[in-house]
Design a protein around this nucleic acid. Structure first.
Lengths: 212, 212
DNA sequence: TACGCTGACGACAGCAACTGCCATTACAGC
DNA sequence: GCTGTAATGGCAGTTGCTGTCGTCAGCGTA
């Protein structure tokens, strides 16, 4: 039996998440969060670097899972296959879709939280880029593939959250990755068939949907 | 002659940029910036939303130039061609490479500034996505292409800044875009030959057997 | 038993970012 | 000359965040 209640960081996270969603991020002070967890403001800042960081704790686990999965992909696989495998594996650390939805809604409603989310994703891209360099990719290609992979992650996450029939994470990753291949494989000119007889952008959109 | 010196926002930007680079972002107070421009802290916050925003004023011009260029691309062009045209055109609003280098170094040295840069790029991606939707692309494809385009922008900008022979912006955009096509076109198995030009050179012959 | 060390926390002072409110003053239009 | 407007200053107040010091339980050790 310790002098204080156990798991102070966890209690602070819980309290912060609830207060942020109840009365909004701006309308919540750090002192309120700490009091709600039975602690003081000073202790809050001993456990978290700032008011936003309390919402971004799972990021390291996500990153580690992704990187480990990429490292485990056999070297014979293509870059996009490795990235795809990493993204799919990282989905295992997601909590329930319900919680992810609430969290994303919270972030979407606050520019400050969006900024933090974005720099976390940029850091994730850097780690992914390192993993790809370990597979033998040159620097530029690795960085580009990593940034693109994180773009896929963002789109896939949005679609996963909004999917009315709740198809699994891996399906959305595959779909968005396929969409990426489709976009980048598009060729100009009339010699390739794909764009033949598609004068307007509208027609191209429909064709793209059909070809999906 | 007005009551005050003209162009207060411009003077504040100039003063902020110089102080940030001289003594660092953290070691500079808003009061110092304002005093250096012959104004008060209160006036600073009338012209700029916060301490970081004073460094991110050109963003709207960049965005407008990019979007206009994408809108001007004929509908027969592919998505990547449109994005490439937009990125190349937007390069016209860059100041001298020297200034861009100092600015990027400043941002790279401060996480807070990185966060602001990232949310500006995210906003840029949203605008680019809108422009692509105007071309008839479905939502997911437009967002994905826009995010990918911004990834290309980031990589190309880094390479442009670091290019020892200072080749023009358009060349770097083209190169990174080609790299993107190469990465995404990579196929499992040995029948395609494209990937011969990149990566570790390790045999990927068994990829189709392993990953289907 | 007595002593000291450590680790988690509270209390307090203080700085800087940012906001709201009101006062000031040149300039334009009437 | 009068009045409205726009740009600024002054000032108090809130909040995020930091530095510093004190408190107190648990632990080991002579």
């Amino acid at each position: 039996m310790g002098r204080w209640e156990p798991n102070a960081p966890g209690r602070l996270q819980q309290a912060a998440f609830e207060l942020y969603t109840e009365r909004g991020y701006d309308q919540t002070t750090v002192a309120e969060i700490a009091a709600s967890a039975g602690l003081t403001e000073r202790t809050f800042f001993r456990h978290f670097a700032d008011k936003r960081e309390v919402l971004f704790e799972g990021g390291d686990r996500f990153r580690a899972t992704l990187v480990d999965a990429v490292d485990a992909v056999p070297p014979s696989a293509t870059t996009l296959e490795a990235v795809t495998a990493g993204l799919k594996a990282a989905g295992s650390v997601f909590p329930t879709p319900q919680l992810v939805r609430r969290r994303q809604a919270l972030i979407l409603a606050n520019p400050e939280l969006q900024e933090r989310e974005l720099i976390k994703l940029a850091s994730l891209a850097a780690s992914l880029g390192e993993a790809l360099r370990r597979r033998g990719m040159p620097d530029t290609a690795a960085e580009l593939a990593a940034e693109t992979g994180v773009a896929v992650l963002r789109i896939a996450l949005t679609r996963w959250i909004e999917d009315p029939v709740e198809r699994p994470w891996e399906v959305h990753v595959s779909e968005v990755m396929d969409e990426l291949r489709r976009i980048t494989a598009e060729r100009s000119g009339v010699a390739h068939g794909l764009k033949r007889s598609m004068g307007s952008g509208r027609a191209r959109a429909e064709a793209s949907a059909v070809l999906g």
